[in-house]
């Protein structure tokens, strides 16, 4: 019986994300909310692991009270339970404060064998919460997983997607995995699960439930602040060379010399 936790995030649907000029956090008013698209792949992978290995899938999210909608929607895909972390004190959290809060909740849930997250959220695009959460829980993580294979009951072989090809790594449970869209094709929600999700009691845990002081979490507990958001400069053209190292070194030297001249 694997204990599987999937961390999801409710995000604004629009690509055009605006920042609050005072707090520099995301402005959510008046924009339709969806489940972060990458997280649906995390939910699907968790369900597939459960179906193959047995276990229980619990959803976890931190957010304003309306994040409950995202949990209910995600329950429609078939997870067993959900917990919402919501408190005014959690507001304005950076990635660290978010990961810290999620970590405490996972401890309160009695830990997990496997934690899934999407590779990043489409609003903040940091891709930090998953790995930070693993660090806080002191467990290994593999980011950008595109394929999982159990080699025995508590060992996973993971294909980690890279710019060119993939890395094959092994990890022992408990572990945290962040997934890319290539990992699976999420199923359709089920009507019966949606009906059940509508009535499912979703516990809401706040500051006191998790035993935090207000200054440890939310904006107060954050080390970083977003000052400015801008698209990164486009990456230059890249090439992949293959061959014996001495040959490649010679080729690289030649190329660098040419570049130095022009």
């Amino acid at each position: 019986m694997l204990k599987i936790i999937v961390c999801i995030k409710q995000v604004p649907e629009t690509q055009d994300v605006r920042l609050d000029p005072v707090t520099h956090t995301l402005k959510r008013e008046g924009i339709k909310s969806i489940i972060n698209p990458f997280d649906l792949y995390a939910v699907e992978e968790a369900l597939r692991v459960k179906e193959a290995q047995g276990g229980k899938v619990t959803l976890l999210t931190m957010g304003p009270p309306q994040a409950e909608e995202a949990l209910r929607e995600a329950l429609g895909y078939g997870p067993d339970a959900a917990v919402l972390l919501s408190d005014r004190a959690f507001a304005g959290a950076d990635t660290w404060a978010t990961a810290l809060t999620l970590g405490r909740a996972i401890e309160k849930l009695g830990g997990a064998d496997l934690i899934f997250t999407g590779k990043q959220a489409i609003d903040g695009d940091t891709a930090q919460v998953g790995p930070m959460l693993a660090a806080i829980l002191n467990i290994p993580f593999v980011a950008w997983a595109r394929k999982l294979t159990f080699t025995d009951n508590n060992r996973l072989q993971v294909e980690r997607m890279m710019d060119h090809g993939y890395d094959a790594v092994e990890v022992e449970l408990p572990a945290l995995i962040t997934v890319v869209k290539e990992i699976n094709e999420p199923r359709m929600p089920s009507f019966k699960a949606k009906l059940k999700a509508k009535k499912e009691p979703i516990p809401v845990w706040g500051l006191n439930d998790l035993g935090f002081q207000p200054e440890q979490v939310g904006l107060a507990g954050s080390f970083t602040q977003v000052v400015k958001v801008f698209p990164p400069p486009a990456r230059g053209q890249s090439e992949t060379w293959e061959g014996p190292a001495p040959e490649l070194a010679a080729r690289l030297w030649q190329r660098l010399k040419e570049m130095g001249r022009s």
Partner: peptide, 18 residues
Amino acid sequence: TEEQQMLRDLARQITNER
């Protein structure tokens, strides 16, 4: 009813996504 809307929305989701 809410249930009927849910059913219709689920069918629409299949239409739009699949």
